[in-house]
């Protein structure tokens, strides 16, 4: 057994992946990073503050206080007051008094237990949603899909920045407020793809992102590429080709080859050469031998010399048996050049 031959059965590396990694990396770098020297201090301060509010004396009940929490510095269950208990697994800041508390959630999950009929006001706030409660047990999670509110007992009022507003109860099930920024909608789209979500949910997210970002720009382009693939896989060929054209008209394209190939092959299979040639032509230089064979078949009638050159060039490169045979047949049909 040839071990290398076996290892080569692993899936090929996705050639577009490094571009996506680079894009994510650049976005992460733009976010302000916490200074490493300050982490121990922040951790110490947070633990001290947490201990302070766990053991807070009665006179502090109406004194506003503020506590930052993060997975590195503070996580787990904590008693904010006699009537509010929080389970923290994320990053954010809690501010307020015993009975009037606002939590700004940057990421992760908060599970809040609020004793009913105590007049306690508690709100969890993110860019996408404000969840307001009086007397209940509920959780708010800010993750890649958006801000998810789930109620275990009682009822909460949710106002989403995406336009949705209403109450959430245990019977209704969880509600997710959609992200309102294109980059976060892109993150949601990838999370939906990972989870194998329904096509209409995915396309709705991509539509929203493209409407916000526009087809130009890096994020808009990435959203367009995903929508092109979603349309293509659902058999909506015209929509997929339209997205491909929009993407290719953009100025910050890094995935031209990938888009031309996807659209070219899709158009070739569903609409024939008339629709495919505009996508296949740019692949004459940069594409694969298979791309050139398809292009040759499309130009064979109008420009047999060019088709012959393309086929001869492809035959000189690495091809599997099926494609090699196809190229030979095409070349013979041109008159055995």
């Amino acid at each position: 057994m040839d071990i290398r031959t076996e290892l080569l059965k692993l899936p090929e590396l996705d050639s577009a992946a490094p571009d996506r990694v680079w894009q994510r990396f650049q976005e992460s770098r733009r976010r302000p990073a916490s200074r490493s020297w300050s982490l121990p201090l922040i951790g110490l301060a947070t633990v001290a503050a947490a201990a302070l509010f766990v053991f807070s004396p009665a006179w502090m009940a109406d004194t506003p206080r503020s506590v930052s929490f993060s997975p590195d510095s503070f996580a787990g269950e904590t008693k904010w007051s006699e009537v509010v208990t929080l389970e923290l697994d994320g990053r954010g800041t809690a501010r307020g008094t015993d009975r009037d508390l606002e939590i700004s959630l940057e990421s992760g999950t908060i599970l809040a237990h609020v004793q009913p009929n105590t007049g306690t006001q508690l709100a969890v706030v993110t860019d996408e949603a404000r969840v307001q409660v009086v007397g209940t047990v509920f959780s708010v999670t800010r993750g890649p899909l958006g801000v998810r509110t789930e109620v275990t007992r009682g009822k909460v009022q949710v106002d989403c920045a995406d336009g949705w507003s209403g109450s959430v109860t245990p019977e209704q099930g969880a509600h997710t407020c959609l992200p309102i920024r294109p980059a976060l909608l892109l993150t949601r789209a990838d999370a939906l793809l990972d989870a194998g979500a329904a096509d209409e949910v995915l396309v709705d997210t991509l539509d929203r992102g493209i409407a916000l970002a526009g087809p130009q720009g890096v994020v808009g382009g990435e959203l367009l590429v995903r929508r092109m693939r979603a349309h293509g896989q659902a058999g909506r060929v015209d929509e997929a080709l339209s997205d491909a054209r929009l993407y290719l008209e953009g100025s910050e394209n890094t995935r031209d080859i990938e888009v031309n190939r996807y659209a070219g092959w899709l158009a070739m299979g569903a609409r024939g050469c008339g629709a495919a040639i505009q996508f296949l032509s740019p692949l004459q230089q940069a594409g694969s031998p298979e791309d050139r064979i398809l292009l040759a078949e499309c130009v064979a009638a109008s420009d047999p010399n060019r088709a012959g050159d393309l086929l001869a060039e492809s035959l000189g490169q690495s091809l599997d048996d099926t494609w090699r045979e196809r190229a030979r047949r095409d070349l013979e049909a041109l008159g055995g050049r």
Binding site: M1, D2, I3, R4, T5, E6
Partner: peptide, 16 residues
């Protein structure tokens, strides 16, 4: 690999 029947051919080890 061989116990799972995955090897395409058992033809001795290729030396690298």
């Amino acid at each position: 690999v061989e116990s799972s029947g995955g090897a395409s051919a058992v033809d001795g080890s290729r030396a690298v």
